[in-house]
Amino acid sequence: MGNGLAIDIPSRTVMMEGKTVDLTKQEFNLLCYLAQNEGRVISRNQIYELLWEDEYHGSDDGIICQVSRLRKKIEKDPEHPKLIKTVRGVGY
Protein backbone atom coordinates (compact mmCIF):
# COMPACT_ATOMS: atom_id res chain seq x y z
CA MET A 1 0.00 0.00 0.00
CA GLY A 2 3.01 2.29 0.18
CA ASN A 3 3.37 5.48 2.22
CA GLY A 4 5.63 3.86 4.84
CA LEU A 5 3.27 0.96 5.50
CA ALA A 6 4.74 -2.56 5.73
CA ILE A 7 2.64 -5.68 6.26
CA ASP A 8 4.24 -9.01 7.19
CA ILE A 9 1.50 -11.58 6.73
CA PRO A 10 3.31 -14.65 8.16
CA SER A 11 4.12 -12.86 11.43
CA ARG A 12 0.87 -10.84 11.36
CA THR A 13 2.74 -7.60 12.02
CA VAL A 14 2.27 -4.14 10.59
CA MET A 15 4.79 -1.33 10.60
CA MET A 16 4.06 2.30 9.81
CA GLU A 17 7.15 4.39 9.16
CA GLY A 18 9.23 1.89 11.13
CA LYS A 19 6.92 1.72 14.15
CA THR A 20 4.85 -1.32 15.06
CA VAL A 21 1.09 -0.82 14.74
CA ASP A 22 -1.10 -2.77 17.15
CA LEU A 23 -4.07 -4.21 15.23
CA THR A 24 -6.91 -6.50 16.24
CA LYS A 25 -7.47 -9.69 14.27
CA GLN A 26 -10.26 -8.07 12.25
CA GLU A 27 -8.25 -4.90 11.59
CA PHE A 28 -5.29 -6.96 10.38
CA ASN A 29 -7.50 -9.12 8.15
CA LEU A 30 -9.19 -6.05 6.71
CA LEU A 31 -5.88 -4.29 6.03
CA CYS A 32 -4.43 -7.38 4.33
CA TYR A 33 -7.53 -7.82 2.19
CA LEU A 34 -7.48 -4.19 1.08
CA ALA A 35 -3.74 -4.31 0.42
CA GLN A 36 -4.03 -7.51 -1.62
CA ASN A 37 -6.73 -5.82 -3.69
CA GLU A 38 -5.00 -2.47 -4.05
CA GLY A 39 -6.46 -0.45 -6.91
CA ARG A 40 -9.80 -2.29 -6.78
CA VAL A 41 -12.94 -1.10 -5.05
CA ILE A 42 -13.96 -3.55 -2.34
CA SER A 43 -17.67 -3.57 -1.56
CA ARG A 44 -19.07 -3.43 1.94
CA ASN A 45 -20.59 -6.83 1.23
CA GLN A 46 -17.15 -8.32 0.57
CA ILE A 47 -15.72 -6.74 3.71
CA TYR A 48 -18.62 -7.93 5.85
CA GLU A 49 -18.29 -11.51 4.62
CA LEU A 50 -14.52 -11.43 5.24
CA LEU A 51 -14.68 -10.00 8.75
CA TRP A 52 -17.76 -11.74 10.09
CA GLU A 53 -17.82 -14.83 7.87
CA ASP A 54 -21.53 -14.31 7.35
CA GLU A 55 -23.85 -12.97 4.68
CA TYR A 56 -24.16 -9.21 4.47
CA HIS A 57 -27.50 -7.96 5.81
CA GLY A 58 -27.25 -4.32 4.80
CA SER A 59 -25.95 -2.82 8.04
CA ASP A 60 -22.80 -0.75 7.48
CA ASP A 61 -22.21 0.26 11.12
CA GLY A 62 -19.72 -2.51 11.92
CA ILE A 63 -17.83 -1.99 8.69
CA ILE A 64 -17.65 1.77 9.10
CA CYS A 65 -16.41 1.31 12.68
CA GLN A 66 -13.68 -1.16 11.64
CA VAL A 67 -12.47 1.07 8.80
CA SER A 68 -12.49 4.11 11.09
CA ARG A 69 -10.43 2.34 13.76
CA LEU A 70 -7.98 1.08 11.15
CA ARG A 71 -7.61 4.54 9.63
CA LYS A 72 -6.83 6.01 13.06
CA LYS A 73 -3.99 3.53 13.42
CA ILE A 74 -2.39 3.76 9.96
CA GLU A 75 -3.32 7.13 8.45
CA LYS A 76 -1.35 10.30 9.20
CA ASP A 77 -4.62 12.25 8.94
CA PRO A 78 -7.58 9.87 9.37
CA GLU A 79 -10.04 12.65 8.45
CA HIS A 80 -8.36 12.91 5.02
CA PRO A 81 -7.23 9.32 4.34
CA LYS A 82 -4.70 8.52 1.66
CA LEU A 83 -4.41 4.75 2.17
CA ILE A 84 -8.04 3.68 2.62
CA LYS A 85 -10.39 5.82 0.60
CA THR A 86 -14.17 5.65 0.60
CA VAL A 87 -15.99 5.15 -2.69
CA ARG A 88 -19.44 6.56 -1.93
CA GLY A 89 -22.25 4.05 -2.12
CA VAL A 90 -19.89 1.20 -3.02
CA GLY A 91 -17.11 0.50 -0.51
CA TYR A 92 -13.42 1.19 -0.08
Rank of each mutant, 00 (worst) to 15 (best):
K25T: 12
I47Y: 01
Y56W: 15
V41D: 05
G39A: 14
C32F: 09
E55S: 15
Y56M: 08
V90G: 02
I9Y: 09
D22T: 15
S43C: 00
I9F: 08
A35R: 07
P10F: 09
E55N: 11
F28V: 07
E27N: 00
D54P: 04
V14P: 11
G91K: 09
I47N: 01
W52S: 01
D8Y: 11
L70E: 01
R69N: 13
V87E: 09
G89L: 04
E79M: 04
L50H: 07
Y92N: 05
C65P: 01
G4R: 09
N29C: 12
A35G: 01
H57Y: 13
T24N: 04
V67S: 04
V87Y: 04
S11Q: 13
K19M: 10
L50C: 07
Q66Y: 10
Q26I: 08
E27W: 02
E38W: 07
G62L: 13
P78C: 02
Y92H: 03
M16A: 08
Q36C: 11
G91R: 06
D54N: 15
V67L: 13
D61P: 02
E53T: 11
R44W: 07
R69E: 09
Y48P: 04
R88D: 09
V21R: 04
I64D: 15
I74P: 03
S59N: 15
G62H: 02
Y56F: 14
Q66K: 14
I9D: 14
I64S: 10
K72G: 00
H80R: 14
E27F: 04
I47H: 05
T20N: 11
S68D: 06
Y56N: 07
V87H: 05
N29Y: 11
